[in-house]
Amino acid sequence: MAINEAQLTTWSSLGSVQQSAATYQTIRGVLDHKDSAYYPKLYQIFLQGSYGNDTNVWRDSDVDVVMRLTSVYYPDTSSLAPTEKANYDHARLPTDYSWALFKQEVAGWLTKNFGAGVDASGKAIYVPGSGNRRDADVLACAEHRHFITYPAIGNPSYREGIIFWKADGTQIINYPKQHSENCTTKHQNTKSYFKPTVRIFKNIRNRMIEDGRLQEGIAPSYFLEGMLYNVPTNLFGGSYQQTVINCFNHIYGLQDKSQLTCANGIHYLLRHGHSVCWPPDDHNTFMEAFKQFWNDY
């Protein structure tokens, strides 16, 4: 039987807002302090993840903060014609600063301010919570530019993202600002149904994990947002129950899911062996578990 509207309304609600906002302001204040080694460099600080996209639920803990170095960028010139690549090579200036040094300095500054519990061994720098401050993950990254054109005269055009490397040397390129902007546009176009629907799917995922129906890590929030981003706008609305049914049935019934994209509109959603894509087997596992949970509820 279907899950009733009252329960879905509860699951659609935002999780902790004030505590996460206070955590972000505290972390941001430390990151942006003039005494840090990297302060003379150019950088941007912004939220990403569930708190940044207003899709957080009560079980969410970590506040995800992006610390993006912008005085140095890493290029992708593979789309440039040979003459434009030559223009780029001529204009490119050398630099003695790097993402690796930036991450090292950010981690050192966070450790100095928040103690030995700070852990920089993962892809993000973990800052443990204390008192009312939540745990936080600070992603130290650099600007990435995928150049589309590079004329001899005038400004080049490029797609702007972030880049960082995992401990094993794997390079990660992603587009958090495009993801956030597209989710907001989708939310507006669905008469404010998109983000509450994401929270419903996340809460159901969390219940399935608690009940032993789904393994932790099979359905990250980022990919759930991406999946629902692909649902046509007209399938949202009326009621949460009908919206959830419409969204699930649309994705479940697609014969070809290969062209679905992440919410950034750039990466494919479902691919094997890509760190920025959802493994299709994990997606299928989630969908079947969701179907069973819904029917058993």
Rank of each mutant, 00 (worst) to 15 (best):
I251E: 04
G238Y: 12
N249H: 11
Y240W: 15
P232M: 07
T233W: 14
F248Q: 08
Q241M: 07
N234F: 13
G226I: 04
A219W: 07
I218N: 06
G237R: 05
P220V: 03
G238V: 14
Y229P: 00
I218D: 06
E225G: 08
Q241N: 12
A219E: 00
L235C: 05
G226R: 10
V244H: 01
G237Y: 02
Y240C: 14
T233A: 14
G237C: 13
L228K: 02
Y222C: 08
F223D: 05
N230Q: 06
Y252M: 09
P220H: 08
I251L: 05
Q242K: 15
T243V: 13
Q241T: 02
G237D: 10
F236S: 14
F248E: 00
N249W: 06
I218T: 12
Y240D: 13
Y240H: 12
I245Q: 15
S221V: 01
C247E: 02
H250W: 08
I245P: 00
Y240R: 13
T233V: 15
E225T: 09
N246P: 10
Y222F: 06
S221L: 10
G237V: 13
C247R: 00
N230Y: 03
N246T: 12
N249K: 09
F236D: 15
H250S: 06
Y252S: 14
F236Q: 11
S221P: 02
Y222G: 00
T233S: 14
T243R: 07
Y229W: 13
P232D: 14
Y222R: 05
I251D: 05
C247P: 07
T243P: 10
F248C: 05
P220A: 01
N249V: 10
V231N: 01
A219Q: 03
Y252A: 14
T243W: 00
S221Y: 03
I245S: 09
I218W: 09
T243H: 03
Q242H: 15
F248N: 04
V244Y: 03
F236K: 09
Y240V: 14
A219D: 05
L235D: 01
A219N: 01
G237H: 07
L228V: 11
L224C: 02
F236W: 13
Y222P: 06
G238T: 11
L224P: 09
V231H: 07
P232H: 10
N249R: 06
Y229V: 08
L224Q: 02
H250E: 01
L228Q: 01
N234G: 12
I251C: 00
V244K: 08
T233L: 15
Q242A: 11
L228W: 06
Y240M: 13
F223T: 01
P220K: 06
N249E: 14
P232Q: 11
I245W: 12
P232L: 05
N249C: 10
I245L: 12
T243A: 12
G238E: 04
I251H: 04
Y229G: 02
T243C: 12
L224V: 07
V231R: 01
G237P: 06
F236V: 11
S239Y: 05
V244S: 06
M227L: 02
V231Q: 00
S239D: 07
F223K: 04
L235Q: 08
N249Q: 14
N249S: 09
N246I: 10
I218P: 04
